[in-house]
Write a protein that binds this DNA or RNA. Structure first.
Lengths: 230, 230
DNA sequence: AATTTCCTTAACAAATTCTTACGATCAAAC
DNA sequence: GTTTGATCGTAAGAATTTGTTAAGGAAATT
């Protein structure tokens, strides 16, 4: 499973390649729409990053062609804001797009987001799992959290926080780490946004929020999910 | 380990210097690409904040030169109007960039994020481990200390002291050494802050604090963690 | 045994960190 | 355009930690 990057500008392709490889993804490269189509036929690709404007057969056409056979999520790159209407028309549910110039961090964030999204929709499951501790069960498949069998409705941010914390039960994460993971951007201000969300999650999942059973604070360090081996 | 700030605008360098010093980072300054390269060769630098556009040898060139030998994460500064694509072409995985004018808080946040990121990716990994002696177990990941299986809640300072002492079980450390390690600053006064903390830790981990089993004093020298081989 | 030095203990005040409540903001839905 | 729900920011209050002081013991020195 790899990510296909398609852009006629070599610099951009290579930069993205570096970034994404660093994140542990396998990368395939194409510099024209034709190459992209050929690779999609041959290789096992889970995500495409595609420049909209390219000579010869442009990105949009290539996309249409690909879409005839395969349903691979695509992140579009576009230089001009005017193109966006066109892209919108073409994107199928779940596709994303980024306008140039873009922040490398943003690209990584969107790739992760896209893969996570796609995976939860049953496209081609990757690391989808179920996390448990005590009566707490978080199921990636259904984006669902249950406490002793009772379903708890979490907001997206709350879900992300819980997912992050439960990915390594017992481990303590700092507020900044939690912020970076849930918001996908560095934590600027020393606000207590995370703390507020923690409180809200507690209100939902804890029987007695004042004495949390699951979502515990480690004073001066951060928060963690208690790991109950049962 | 210090942070190198490189920009031809003195004001910017000095502003950043103030902010980052205030956060406890050691700072090195350069006003040209050449200076930056020279410093990178000589000094122990863990992060570079680099302006893209500078006279003489500009930031991008300096970056290339630096990248030939060292893999230090870089945060680029660039004016909005400048060609961000160019930056993309040069950056290696994990770099970040900020557009001017920037919020000082944002810079600090990104610096922290970058360092954390780099550290967790094996650049220079923090010592993560588990330390044991007798029934005493200290686990770094979980920021947790257990005595005969029972979890003991330590405050940040207490944890640091224990971590330091347990990193070399049996070895005796002076009060000043302990202070310098837990507080990360030299010990000026001859107060008994450390002693007080030692007492508090004992109260938590020892069955009989008057006859400590683990945290022992070595009269006139300092304290140590008893090393039980089991 | 007295003295000195160092360690232990206790209690308090200050600083820091977390919790909670409330209102503002923002975007989507109606 | 209004309503709704989700998210965010602020600020006050509560809880915890930390540094300081001071008095009491224990170990070494004389």
């Amino acid at each position: 499973m790899s990510i296909l990057i398609c852009d006629d500008e070599k610099e951009i392709v290579e930069a993205l390649e570096l970034y994404l490889k660093n994140e542990g993804y396998a990368i395939l490269k194409a510099y024209t729409g034709r190459e992209a189509i050929a690779l999609v036929e041959k290789e096992d690709i889970e995500l495409i990053i595609m420049d909209v404007m390219m000579p010869e057969m442009d990105g949009l056409r290539a996309t249409m062609k690909i879409r005839e056979t395969k349903n691979i999520p695509i992140i579009f790159l576009s230089a001009k804001t005017e193109d966006n209407d066109k892209i919108m028309g073409l994107t199928m549910g779940g596709d994303d797009y980024i306008t140039k110039p873009f922040n490398p961090m943003e690209v990584i964030a969107r790739v992760k987001s896209q893969l996570r999204r796609y995976n939860t929709l049953g496209g081609c499951p990757e690391k989808v799992g179920t996390y448990r501790t005590g009566g707490l069960v978080l199921e990636d498949d259904y984006k669902r959290l249950t406490v002793d069998g009772e379903e708890v409705k979490l907001t997206p941010v709350e879900y992300k926080i819980m997912h992050f914390l439960m990915s390594e039960k017992g481990k303590v994460f700092s507020i900044d780490q939690i912020y970076e993971n849930a918001w996908e951007e560095p934590a600027y201000n020393s606000d207590n946004t995370v703390a507020v969300h923690i409180r809200r999650i507690r209100e939902k999942i804890e029987i007695n929020p004042k004495e949390p059973k699951y979502l515990k604070v480690v004073w001066g360090i951060g928060y963690k999910i208690e790991n109950y081996l049962d």
